[in-house]
Simulated scan of single mutants.
Amino acid sequence: MQREDRQFVDAFARGLAILEALSREQRPLNNGELSRATGLPPSTVSRLTHTAMALGYLRFSQSKRAYELTPKNLTLGYPVLAGMTLLDRARPLLKQLSEETGETVGLVIRDGLHVTFVEVVQGSELVAVRLATGGRLPIAVSAAGIAILAAMPDRDRRILATRVRAHLAKRGGNVETFNAKLVEATELGICFIRDAWRRGIGGIAMGLENNGEMAAITIPIATGSVSEMDMHGRLADALRATIDLLRGTAGGAHSVQTGTPSEARRRSH
């Protein structure tokens, strides 16, 4: 479409058209499908998808041979978060978990080789770790990142773990510690981290899959105030119960719709 506005940047509009088409269709699209959806020439679409991938806004699904949006798009605005059904289901459970434990609680999604906090409920304890929605941490040193890896299918886990190790090694990180924590989290179904990201900070996390997207609930803790026994006992029990409730809300009419983490633990016994 011809525009008389000299301030209008056609290249920017075309790039947004690609993202809008993927958001509208809610499924991966290849270059041909994107060309038909946007009315842009195939050669233009090819350059735009290449650029969007380089910037981290798109990724190419090898299994579907098509492009899909990445969590990085969430950084463009909070309204994107409002449409996440997982977030809607998780909000009251995060609040309950934080109130029961006194600790900060977060919902985290994978963002390339990092994880991003899409919801944070601040803890009531004076020593509770303070985090912000939108904060990012490397997968290799975060309980949430390792928990997400541990919850992935074997093949996907191996591929991503290889990339994480390479990224960690380039920055002089401790690959052996990462490997050990990943094995432990895969075996236990829950990840425990102490003093990996920053001295004095640790975390507990469990991963889950939501419509093909990996996420995790995490409880960051101050290691000077929360013992390993408390992490593996009281906090881990509360987190497991919350994950059970969250998974239940995705199950339909027979799912668990109400109840606190402590009530869920009593029912399980």
Rank of each mutant, 00 (worst) to 15 (best):
Q96A: 11
A52G: 06
D111N: 07
N73Y: 05
L87H: 01
Q96E: 13
R110I: 01
A52E: 11
L48A: 01
R59N: 12
G106K: 14
H50Q: 11
L74C: 09
L81R: 07
A37V: 00
S98K: 01
S61G: 10
S43E: 14
T85Q: 13
Y67L: 07
R110F: 02
L48R: 00
K72G: 03
L69H: 01
G56V: 01
P79E: 04
P79Y: 04
Y67F: 09
V105K: 02
V108L: 04
E100C: 10
R47V: 15
P92H: 05
P79H: 04
P79Q: 03
L97V: 04
L34H: 06
L107G: 04
T85I: 11
R65V: 08
R65A: 05
K64H: 14
L113V: 09
G39Y: 04
V45G: 06
H50M: 14
L74M: 06
L107I: 00
A54H: 03
R65F: 10
P79M: 08
L87K: 09
R47D: 15
T85W: 12
G56W: 01
V45A: 05
T44W: 07
L74D: 07
V105I: 10
Y57N: 13
L76D: 06
A90Q: 08
L40V: 11
M84Y: 04
T104V: 06
S98H: 03
